[in-house]
Design a protein around this nucleic acid. Structure first.
Lengths: 160, 160
DNA sequence: TGGTGTATGTTATAACATAACAGGTTTGCA
DNA sequence: TGCAAACCTGTTATGTTATAACATACACCA
């Protein structure tokens, strides 16, 4: 896992992390949602990299830090963060990533590198499907858009 | 579960089913892939409706018919059918649906009714994400596009 | 006849997720 | 002050989804 990637280009991750945390604090405060220690820590753990982590990987970290050892602890914190839009679930992987564009309009699309596991977030705007849905009378409430493939770094690295 | 739905409009399902089966037989024959009894039966079961079924639901049917009772039996048949493009996996639901457009170009998008479970298949063509990916140098190999919401019938039926 | 490839059968377990209940803290209000 | 409501956390137990690994069977053909 090489991932320290946003949009697969290098970036100042410390800054990325800090601003995400600040944003989380302020949006939770604004909404009266409680960013408790466990929730905050889960967010921090996910923010360490732009790779997706499984709930049980997060739980292992929490356990190591004495913050909880049972599945519901991790799942509850993750659900909260997903509800607040601070974390996204990657269906394809049954895993979670910190939101890369906190605060921004949200209907995210993801590019997932099958080699290094990096996940880049983009805006979805699947107009094509939106039109089809409208024509069929289908009322879209949520969309999942996930592309799997190879990030630039892993293309050069060989097919591995 | 009301689903007997393709694109959420009524249709001649018997015909739909028959043509899908014929298509499956001919494409497998053309490729030298073996459409064995278990595989065929799984396809038939999925073709009964346009709703998604979990692997264990399919397995229960197989078991009732004496065709196998252990998870790998169902998962192997489903993997085969997915590889052949005859069945699609709905990531959001950890479930499977028979392909509604067998033979056609494939990069499907789905509309999933959260009320009745019906699944309609459309063409994906997420140009927006394709452009973003190209710009980022990301090489897309597969895409998952799934919209969850309410089908026309379930919108009238109330929010339930 | 024996080897190769493919499919099936079975055991066991891994990986992901949640229901349900118990206990603690905070808040607000009578 | 005392109580109730709301919310968060801890824990048990279990449910659900998925696969690794190994054994058996059968078909084809050199």
């Amino acid at each position: 896992m090489k991932s320290d990637t946003d949009g697969f280009g290098g970036h100042n991750h410390a800054h990325c992390e800090q601003s995400a945390l600040e944003n989380a604090r302020s949006t939770c405060a604004a909404r009266g949602a409680q960013l408790t220690p466990v929730r905050l820590r889960v967010l921090e753990i996910l923010l360490e990299s732009h790779a997706a982590m499984g709930a049980y990987d997060v739980l292992a970290r929490l356990d190591a830090e004495g913050l909880g050892s049972k599945p519901p602890v991790a799942y509850r914190a993750l659900s909260f963060l997903v509800e607040q839009g601070l974390v996204h679930r990657i269906e394809r992987m049954n895993a979670f990533v910190a939101c890369a564009h906190p605060g921004a309009a949200h209907d995210p699309a993801f590019m997932i590198c099958r080699d290094c596991g990096a996940v880049a977030e983009a805006q979805a705007a699947n107009l094509s499907l939106g039109r089809t849905a409208a024509a069929a009378g289908f009322q879209i409430e949520q969309t999942v858009v996930e592309a799997e493939g190879l990030c630039p770094a892993c293309q050069s690295g060989g097919t591995k």
